[in-house]
Amino acid sequence: MNILVFTKRVPATQEEELRLINDGKDVDFSKLPFKVNDWDNYAVEEAVKIVEKGGGAVTAVSIGNTESDEVLRRAIAMGAKDGFLVEVDQALHDPFARGALIRNFIRKESIPFDVIFTGVQSEDDQFASVGGILAALLKLPYVSMVVGIDSVAKDHMVVRRELEGGLQERVRVTTPCVLSIQSGINEPRYVSIMGIRKASKVERKSFKGIEYDAGKESHIELVKWVYPPKKGGAQMLGGELPDICKKLMEILKEKGVYQ
């Protein structure tokens, strides 16, 4: 089975302060570290696991600037055979534009695949839409929030998707199809620096997004970014650690959960 998996390089924003610049037209990423999108890491692992078991090849594709090559090297270190970069100068904020670009790329380059994996969402914009848009544009069946792949047959797969409150739904989907992979589906393998160095020797192909009308099919516009609305917020407990602990214990006693 040939699996095409999409992987995105995103800023690591946990515990980082995000600063808006140019009146909210841009976010200052200059001091932020970058990483692979968590969901895509699970998607790459799942794809590699399937081909390790049943044969085939994984091709990792990233849409982004040249620095996105690092997530391709990472995917190769995990077991992908090829890495393709579709280079765009500017981030495409509209998931429709990204879906359309991917469709154009796949069609024009006649990229072969049996299944396409995307992460459910990316950590930055959290649209959770590219997989579904792409599936519809390619006229393929779609399943999102995939937390388990139970079986892989020649013409179909049986997968589990996450609903709410611990409930899952088992569905049968014919291939080719597009699946969006949910975090927690597997334990992504550890990638060592040595592994990435070795992967660097595998040639990655680079394509220019402009050749596939990047950004042409866009239906929404990001006007600007703003800071979140303040909701009143918490009463902050300050001071040295012993003081903080004392106040904390007082609250727990007052609320009646600790005697």
Partner: peptide, 12 residues
Amino acid sequence: YYSDKLFGEFKT
């Protein structure tokens, strides 16, 4: 955006 650290203003 970014788990509620920012919000994007969008129009269609």
